[in-house]
Design a protein around this nucleic acid. Structure first.
Lengths: 364, 364
DNA sequence: ACGTCTTATAAAAACGTTTTTATAGCCTTT
DNA sequence: AAAGGCTATAAAAACGTTTTTATAAGACGT
């Protein structure tokens, strides 16, 4: 027994405040205060203790601190499990969001943890579990619904959170958003200016808050041009390539089919382009398609499409930054940022652009 | 002061072992043992204590347990930051991996935490930090290099980990892998059988372990057919659409250009198809392209491509399962699984399939 | 009937922090 | 010069577990 414990040279246990106290001759209370930059400790003492900490590579045990302070030092992200459902290209930009948040958290004492959720309602339950068990000090989530149960719950508990997307029901929560209304409106205006009159909006489930923004922007563009809106051409569904293809087939089978398409993301757009090929239609000569660029691959589509682009990682970084500030006590109302994506024109977006080929345009 | 503390009805603090001890009349030691199913406690006592725990919704504070036991109850995933670099479609399947791992961890007492890494070397440093500070009880990572510093370090420390991908340098670590050698070999065999003789392999950086597997499978296919290999047609780079397009241009500019292409993922394939359009070549009539399906969208490409498909989430689930077993003490050598993707034929993959159009084949 | 062995539970210690409270020594102030 | 107030540090308590050690009560063998 003793042979086992004393088998080798000391197994190099990780240093604690006690180690530093013994090294420096101060008490563990002073060591702790010095490391936390308490004003009651002399600068000289701080310097000595910090030097000792440095020399042995001391890092405080976050779980012990957590036990004492009640803080968890965890930042939770609610990640929708739907990204993996049916193995359809759906929500894959989550890796970038996580990456952005994680970057923002770098250097802070917070660690990113991921909690899977099935939908917004399930997300509420997970959020409640996190709050009640103290599993995290703040929460980030996306896919905001019009009346989002997570936003409602967390606001009522006054628990720090940042949403990716606004939510009308509650006043003054922290969020980062994309100006979806502007994107849809601007795309529609482009198509109207190009001569299109029958324009389809490929949209997500209308229960998403940003789906409403897109519809509003879409309608406003017609109103501005003094035209009747195309509410019959709004397609709503889950954002898969399959949905894009099926929507195209359905819309083109209508009596007065659309010639212009405003798509919501690249997955649906890819499906829509496949649908056009099924009908031997060209997105260069027969119809115009404008997309929203979430993965930055529209450049490689056939044909390359005009898109609106907003790096997702930048949103993620802002989410992380806001969460840190929210957890530090900043008011949620001050933590709002709406990103306006950048237009990347790749097609003339004109009705009947026939006669001009892709190759010719490339040279121009 | 007293007015503040006694302001409202008791603020419903979360129950602890002490709460349960007071409720049941047992000591906190017995409560703890009962909850952990210790054999020294009577079944009757256990039942009573558990009933009490149930009634107040007791959940042990993992950080307090962690402090006492030294276990962290965290499962770490090293996620490459490259997914967000340059905003090129790259590694986006990480959301599915995380989803799979998280599902496997559901019900266990482990929580998933994400650590960003820049590359394998940086991953080694992060792994070392995790081990030294006890930030997690097990680690999962992917993008295995031929001589992976993370595998070497963690093996030497005998720290539980599961790699997504094998690694030759160390013997007997736990891993989940895709049979990349078989995929590349089978794809090459198909093209050879279709009459192709000049076949290109679009491959990742050769330092990745699976890049070598693919090359081995590629060469073996030629050897089996009694043909000279096409080592001059191996393109190596980062797996972006840009790389796919540039590789195609470079390869087709050679004196004896390839007519068949074996691609490594859908991003490069999309770029390669764009490159073909640049040169007015068709993947139906002029060349054949076989891809590996990581996002399940090859069906929507122009033209739809023959691919090998393996749901990433299934790999993730296996990774999580293996990690749990590894953390429970199972030997790493027993925890190995290699997935063989499923072939999804969508093109004849024949040289000079000219004359037959996409539309005609669809009807057949 | 007396010590010994089980058995079920209780008491106490420990994990590594942070925070509250205590304690010396020194400096003012009058 | 004594009382009071700072100042720098130390001591102690607490967070909620788990684990080791202790204890009381029965059962058992002689």
């Amino acid at each position: 027994m003793t042979a086992r414990t004393a088998h080798r040279s000391a197994p190099a246990r990780r240093p604690t405040v006690k180690t530093l106290a013994e090294m420096t001759g101060y008490s563990i209370a002073t060591v702790s205060k010095a490391l936390n930059d308490s004003p009651v400790v002399t600068d000289e003492t701080k310097a000595r203790i910090r030097a000792a900490a440095e020399s042995v590579g001391y890092a405080a045990n976050p779980r012990a601190a957590s036990l004492r302070t009640g803080k968890s030092f965890q930042a939770a992200v609610l990640m929708p499990i739907s990204v993996a459902e049916g193995h359809e290209w759906h929500g894959v930009e989550y890796a970038e969001i996580l990456s952005g948040i994680s970057r923002a958290l770098e250097g802070s004492s917070y660690q990113l943890s991921v909690h899977l959720i099935r939908d917004a309602e399930d997300g509420r339950n997970v959020a409640e579990k996190i709050v009640r068990r103290g599993l995290a000090d703040g929460i980030v989530f996306s896919g905001i619904r019009r009346n989002d149960p997570r936003v409602v719950y967390l606001s009522s508990m006054d628990f720090p959170f940042v949403a990716m997307g606004h939510c009308d029901t509650t006043s003054g929560h922290a969020y980062v958003d994309i100006d979806s209304g502007w994107v849809a409106g601007d795309a529609t205006r482009r198509l109207i200016a190009g001569g299109h009159r029958r324009i389809a909006l490929i949209n997500p489930d209308p229960d998403f808050a940003y789906a409403q923004d897109r519809i509003a922007g879409f309608r406003a563009a017609f109103a501005q041009a003094g035209l009747a809106p195309c509410d019959d051409l709004i397609a709503e569904g889950d954002l898969t390539a399959r949905f894009g293809r099926e929507s195209l087939h359905r819309l083109r089978a209508m009596t007065d089919p659309p010639t212009g398409f405003v798509c919501v993301n690249e997955a649906t757009t890819l499906g829509l382009l496949a649908g056009l090929r099924d009908l031997s239609l060209s997105a260069e000569e027969d119809v115009s398609v404008i997309s929203y660029d979430d993965l930055n691959v529209s450049e490689y589509f056939a044909p390359p499409l005009t898109t609106y682009f907003q790096p997702v990682e930048e949103l993620g970084r802002c989410l992380g930054d806001f969460l840190l500030r929210r957890m530090a006590g900043e008011a949620p109302g001050d933590l709002v940022r709406v990103f306006r994506p950048r237009l990347i024109p790749r097609q003339p977006d004109r009705l009947a652009a026939a006669g001009q080929t892709h190759q010719q345009r490339r040279k121009a």
